[in-house]
């Protein structure tokens, strides 16, 4: 078996206990800290709830079973006819059950993944490109007034709340200039009009922090021996930057961002909710506001699974770019 393949299998096997841990934590949060009775009271309104209404609410959703062991059931039912098996363990096979409005959560997630990606992927790629370009410029002109003011601008941009960018952008571009619709989402080719503003704002909102971070990475590379050697050879500074430093600095930058790529599916909570995009981010916010515990639980599970995929991809990307790291 090739070492790469064995390595990936081993990493995947390590992911299983982590997912089980996530599952147990969410189960404890949602079913043990508060009993299903508490949830029923919350959903039905705290005051004047009859015991019948509570038990009906619970039986409709399957919350009337024991938590871990069902002594009354026969055979394998001792373990399977429990809240833990039906609500938590079944998530591993992609069965998330139903939301409060009776829709299937798994299907809802599949349809909402597209709009989320349509915003998150361009924001990610464009943001990475712009930030690397800005950081390279600042590093090239290091020590000059441009660099100093660039860093000051980055710190200022970092200190502004993302919500300010969104609200300000919607007001200026959408309301004052009427260039694009303020919010909403369209199908097919028409969608770009709705996508431009959230993507641009997402890029602007993230630019400060990432530019500053990448700038330090570039500056670390500038101080290395191979750069001095290149200078001593008489290579022009632009060539050193674009051929040597950029290539080497991209390694830590790219391996650092790999971990977020799978979580792009989850979408952005703020952007989607402000712009009315029917993606997974706004799905989560709606679920939180409606206190739909089934949806929140499912999103926690999916988010964790995607993050773990990101971790594995990061490990793999390290071994790909740097052959010195063995597949241990």
């Amino acid at each position: 078996m090739p070492p790469m393949f064995a390595y990936i299998v081993r990493r995947l096997l390590y992911a299983i206990p982590v997912l089980i841990g996530v599952n147990l934590i969410t189960f404890a949060l949602f079913f043990i800290v508060n009993t299903p009775d508490d949830m029923a009271r919350m959903q039905l309104g705290v005051k004047r709830v009859t015991a019948e209404a509570i038990s009906q609410w619970k039986s409709e959703r399957g919350y009337d079973k024991p938590l871990f062991i069902n002594a009354e059931a026969a055979g394998a039912g001792v373990l399977t006819e429990t809240i833990f098996f039906e609500k938590s363990a079944r998530m591993f096979i992609g069965d998330f059950g139903q939301a409060e409005d009776g829709r299937d959560i798994a299907r809802e997630m599949r349809t909402r993944m597209g709009p989320s990606l349509a915003i998150a992927l361009p924001t990610f790629l464009l943001g990475l490109f712009v930030a690397v370009t800005c950081a390279l410029t600042l590093a090239f002109f290091r020590g000059t007034a441009l660099d100093v003011w660039g860093v000051v601008l980055c710190v200022a941009a970092m200190s502004i709340s993302m919500m300010f960018y969104i609200i300000g952008g919607q007001y200026l571009v959408g309301k004052m200039w009427r260039l694009v619709p303020i919010s909403g989402f369209g199908d097919g080719l028409d969608a770009w009009r709705f996508l431009v503003l959230p993507v641009v704002i997402g890029v602007i909102g993230g630019i400060g922090a990432s530019t500053r971070w990448y700038r330090t990475i570039f500056l670390e590379e500038v101080a290395r021996d191979y750069v001095r050697t290149a200078r001593a050879k008489g290579l022009p500074e632009t060539l050193i930057f674009f051929r040597h430093i950029l290539k080497n600095a991209l390694i830590p930058i790219l391996t650092g961002v790999v971990v977020v790529i799978p979580t792009l599916f989850m979408g952005s909570l703020l952007t989607e909710s402000f712009f009315g995009i029917p993606g997974l981010g706004s799905y989560t916010i709606d679920a939180i506001n409606a206190q739909d515990f089934a949806v929140v639980r499912s999103m926690v599970f999916v988010g964790s699974a995607l993050y773990i995929v990101g971790l594995i991809l990061t490990d793999i990307s390290y071994t790909l770019v740097d052959p010195r790291i063995r597949f241990q």
Partner: peptide
């Protein structure tokens, strides 16, 4: 790794919802 892999906002949301239930009851 387990705590990190749970999306921060969702863990906070889950915990705050639970505490709100606790406070309300």
């Amino acid at each position: 790794t387990v705590l990190n892999s749970i999306p921060g906002v969702l863990l906070i949301a889950a915990a705050v919802l639970m505490i709100q239930v606790l406070i309300d009851t």
